[in-house]
């Protein structure tokens, strides 16, 4: 019998039962505790008043740099652009070797091979956006082929988008099975690509939906849940990230397994990054404060972090000409 899920105390049995049918999955997701919009936003706003100074700030800047998926997702991306991006990911500040490298470089599918080559064994991972990113409007076969292509070229991480149309129409099992299928491709032929599932929260409209989509993705085998493609506004916000982090936390309570989290899009300043790190610290705790479990999907954020880092070591603000443009 499908457990009627007030879902406060979910266990593996309940999760297994929940995916037996569309109806069961709907009952489960709609039985998750609701999210009060006013309360969630108030909590996120309250945490963003934390004052992170001196040693805490220095620690957080380096941590944030190491968590960046340095991203370029433009139609006019070139091989030259990817080359610079990879160089920057491996050594963000050419004048300062003590700056940590970023977690990954995130590119479109066709540039994966090149990024793989540039990054070599530097430890910086290659992430590819697949499944007809950003809209996800393609057949399953195309989405799987898209993903397979990325994995074969050597992507360490796959950032897929969910079918928001299916999700909003309530066809939850369809979304679930699609994620599962993509996950399988990530593991084909001995590959072990990490799967990040993009919910595109800007299109989900309510926090209740964000919580449901988070659980759906986690149950289908996501390694990370990710807010946005960056192509839709609003992209990542603090309250959305809060709700998703709460889902990660509850997931660990239910299954004993950690779940990664990646806000992406619209995070461009050190001050923003500090707020996210505080949110992580006080919602899910220290275990998540590593690039293994928390990432920033961002492009311009890195330069602001570098400028702030220079300011902390020299005591002076330098200009944008003291960090590299790409």
């Amino acid at each position: 019998m499908t457990r009627s899920p007030s879902a406060l105390a979910v266990d593996q049995g309940a999760l297994d039962d929940a995916v037996r049918s569309d109806a069961a999955l709907r009952r489960f997701l709609h039985g998750l505790p609701g999210v009060d919009q006013v309360g969630a936003e108030a909590r996120a706003a309250a945490l963003s008043t934390r004052s992170i100074k001196t040693t805490a700030k220095a620690f957080a800047i380096d941590l944030a740099i190491s968590m960046i998926d340095l991203t370029t997702l433009q139609g006019n991306d070139t091989q030259g652009k990817v080359r610079t991006l990879c160089a920057k990911a491996m050594r963000p500040d050419p004048h300062d070797a003590s700056v940590p490298r970023t977690a990954a470089v995130c590119v479109y599918n066709d540039l994966v091979g090149q990024a793989r080559e540039e990054l070599g064994d530097s430890g910086v991972r290659v992430a590819a956006v697949t499944t007809a990113f950003p809209s996800g409007r393609a057949s399953l076969a195309v989405k799987l082929a898209d993903t397979r292509d990325a994995v074969v070229q050597g992507a360490d991480e796959v950032d897929m988008v969910i079918d928001r149309g299916a999700f909003l129409s309530g066809r939850y099992l369809e979304v679930f099975e699609e994620i599962q299928a993509v996950k399988q491709v990530c593991h084909e032929n001995g590959a072990d690509a990490h799967l990040k599932v993009i919910l595109e929260t800007g299109e989900l409209a309510t926090y209740d939906n964000v919580r449901r989509a988070s659980w759906l993705a986690m149950m289908a085998g996501a390694d990370f849940i990710k807010t946005s493609t960056g192509k839709i506004s609003p992209a990542a916000t603090l309250p959305v990230t809060l709700v998703m982090l709460e889902a990660c936390r509850d997931w660990r309570d239910a299954t004993g397994r950690m779940m990664g989290m990646k806000p992406a899009g619209g995070i461009s300043t050190t001050k923003d990054a500090m707020k996210y790190l505080v949110l992580v610290n006080e919602t899910v705790g220290t275990d998540w404060l590593t690039p293994d479990w928390f990432r920033f999907g961002a492009s311009s954020l890195l330069n602001d972090l570098l400028l702030q880092r220079q300011k902390m070591s020299t005591g002076r603000y330098s200009g944008p000409d003291y960090v590299t443009v790409d």
């Binding site: 934390r50 004052s51 404060l289």
Partner: peptide
């Protein structure tokens, strides 16, 4: 093992 994120005093 992650390092705790200790907030420095901000008086």
């Amino acid at each position: 093992m992650p390092t705790p994120f200790e907030y420095a005093p901000a008086p």
